[in-house]
């Protein structure tokens, strides 16, 4: 075994893990604030990817501008979903699940009608590779990782350093107590949804040049995101980050060294973690 065989999956896993974190973070933000498990979160990711595909791939809008438009659009979509679909279902888990499931069907079918069923790719934004020791690292993965990291830093700053972010944390910890402290829940909930959906849209747009967009891509992403937040701890932002990195690395090393069978590794790890710590790695009791 060469050093490259150790380094390469590490870097690949780390870079793809950052993208996982963006999606899972969005899901966990929405859950912690609204107590809604948005099963249509993967479809927001898909919409972000397709928006960037059409803007950058078909109409040659600058990729960064296309990404920003996709983030704004998915954020606003989140606002609309929260106001008209999820807020009326607040407090009723079953209704929330039904709404989210309906949205999955709506968005998948809509995407198939509008965008077609074929996976869509754009020409890579950055082409080429770097050779580091024995490893070959694709520049577009590094670029995607850097953009993901930048977004994570912005979200981290917002949540932990701004008044609105601290209000979000308070609502996540105890909704009633936060309301008693004068925090307007009806402002924080849409804010959480906007951030959560914008993160999913950003992740879809960021991953597009490396992978592709297709109407059903959200299902795989939702499964990965749920695994991450269960592993990291439901509602925990640092847990989502840790879970995303672990899953990225497990998938990368697993595929390289164990191949096909490695697809069960994340679930084995989750089961093992939950056996010893039922709240996940960094979760708290709900």
């Amino acid at each position: 075994m060469t050093i490259g065989e150790i380094i390469q999956p590490f870097i690949n896993g780390l870079l793809i893990g950052l993208n996982y974190i963006l999606v899972a973070l969005g899901l966990t933000v929405i859950f912690s604030i609204m107590s809604v498990l948005n099963f249509a979160h993967g479809e927001i990711y898909m919409i972000g990817a397709f928006l960037v595909y059409y803007l950058a791939g078909e109409y040659h809008v600058n990729y960064v501008l296309a990404l920003l438009i996709a983030i704004v659009a998915t954020g606003i979509l989140g606002l609309i979903l929260e106001r008209f679909l999820f807020r009326p279902a607040k407090g009723d888990i079953l209704t929330g699940v039904i709404v989210a499931t309906g949205l999955i069907w709506f968005f998948q079918t809509g995407a198939q009608i509008i965008f077609g069923s074929q996976p869509s790719r754009i020409y890579p934004v950055v082409v080429g590779t770097w050779h580091i020791i024995d490893a070959v690292i694709a520049k577009d993965r590094v670029a995607a990782g850097a953009i993901s990291l930048a977004f994570l830093a912005i979200v981290y700053y917002f949540i932990y350093r701004t008044k609105q972010g601290k209000a979000m944390q308070a609502v996540a910890q105890d909704r009633e107590a936060a309301a008693l402290q004068g925090i307007d829940i009806n402002r924080i909930s849409p804010l959480g949804f906007v951030i959560g959906c914008a993160l999913a849209g950003a992740a879809g747009g960021i991953i597009l040049p490396i992978l592709y967009a297709d109407p059903y891509m959200g299902s795989t992403v939702l499964s990965t995101s749920l695994s991450i937040i269960i592993l990291g701890g439901v509602g925990s932002i640092p847990g989502a980050a840790l879970g995303g990195l672990i899953l990225g690395l497990v998938n990368s090393y697993g595929a390289q060294f164990a191949g096909y069978i490695s697809s069960i590794f994340p679930f084995v790890i989750i089961i093992v973690v939950l056996l010893f710590k039922r709240t996940g790695l960094m979760g708290r009791k709900i």
């Binding site: 065989e5 992978l211 595929a255 390289q256 697809s263």
Partner: peptide, 20 residues
């Protein structure tokens, strides 16, 4: 052969296994 789950979206890890 190297086999992958049909749901795979990222083939980079499998590239290493193939090149082995």
């Amino acid at each position: 052969m190297v086999k992958f789950p049909a749901s795979t979206t990222d083939f980079a890890p499998y590239a290493q296994k193939l090149m082995a």
